[in-house]
């Protein structure tokens, strides 16, 4: 097979050639791989459609009161643990950057301890706190039996929130380090105290760097709340399990739980996009 003849320019044909229609290149590889993927996807859908799963049951349990109660508990726990995590994380990040060695090492130790042990172990520790401290309280002021104070909610909040704070502290620290030192000086030069300059000048700029990994962290947390099922916290997965223990519709209820986790995580991703736009103000390349 011979190569197609190259188009040779001579003065007579140049104008004709310039008027020809340009054909776009065809990407055969892309077309083939896309077709393969679509076929595989169709096979997967088909398999689930004819599989031993009762989709009607999935539909019924999607809005089952116990499931919705579990969903609500999952959302409440995620929001509370994240709020606790952000408060602790910001405090630990600021402490970590302090010139005071005691503050700095405390912050380092905190991150080391809580990042270094599995969350499920931390949850179990908090839940069983009564084994070492039967009575909690401030001597002379207030005290209560640990088993009544450390409810599944309290144990899950402490376990997840403290663990979250350890991760958030590193994210916030990265954000603080990303702000130019000149910004601290400019804030001081207009008479701002350290805390005011952090709140008004430094943190708003750090947020631009902090929001994407923090969103990631929040999404991880929503799913990690399912671990609280081991300490009897009535979150989404825990309630789904309780239902299938009694009716044996295991896959149907797992699908129901998966559906709601996806809904929550999708909503969070939208929220994150809004926050990212909010904190990109004044930055030329806001992507």
């Amino acid at each position: 097979m011979t190569e197609p003849a190259a188009v040779v320019l001579d003065s007579a044909s140049a104008l004709d050639i310039a008027q020809l229609r340009h054909v776009r290149p065809r990407h055969w590889g892309r077309i083939v791989s896309a077709t393969c993927l679509l076929v595989l996807l169709a096979l997967l859908v088909h398999a689930f459609a004819i599989g031993q799963i009762n989709w009607a049951t999935v539909g019924v349990y999607l809005t089952w009161p116990t499931i919705l109660a579990g969903l609500l508990n999952t959302i409440i726990m995620s929001v509370c643990a994240m709020a606790l995590g952000i408060v602790l994380g910001v405090a630990a990040a600021v402490a970590r950057m302090s010139p005071n060695p005691v503050l700095r090492s405390t912050a380092i130790g905190y991150a080391w301890l809580f990042r270094g042990t599995p969350v499920i172990l931390q949850l179990l520790l908090w839940f069983n706190l009564a084994l070492i401290f039967p009575v909690l309280g401030i001597p002379g002021l207030w005290s209560a039996r640990a088993v009544t104070v450390i409810t599944p909610f309290a144990a899950a909040l402490l376990g997840l929130g403290l663990n979250e704070g350890a991760y958030v502290s590193e994210i916030v620290r990265a954000g603080l380090l990303s702000v130019d030192a000149g910004q601290y000086e400019a804030a001081k030069s207009i008479g701002m105290s350290h805390s005011l300059s952090l709140r008004r000048i430094i943190l708003p700029q750090a947020m631009r760097v902090v929001v994407p990994p923090l969103g990631n962290q929040f999404i991880t947390l929503v799913k990690t709340t399912s671990l609280a099922s081991v300490i009897e916290y009535a979150e989404l997965l825990h309630n789904a399990e309780n239902i299938y223990y009694s009716n044996a519709k295991v896959m149907e209820l797992l699908f129901v739980a998966a559906f709601w986790y996806l809904v929550v995580v999708t909503a969070l991703s939208f929220g994150q996009a809004v926050l990212e736009r909010r904190f990109a103000r004044g930055i030329a390349r806001a992507r």
Partner: peptide, 21 residues
């Protein structure tokens, strides 16, 4: 911080707050 209010400082590299107009 109180004493600093008596002086205004202009920096070589401006140091404007980028998130504010």
């Amino acid at each position: 911080a109180q004493q600093r209010r008596a002086t205004g400082m202009v920096f070589q590299r401006f140091n404007l707050f980028p998130h504010l107009t």
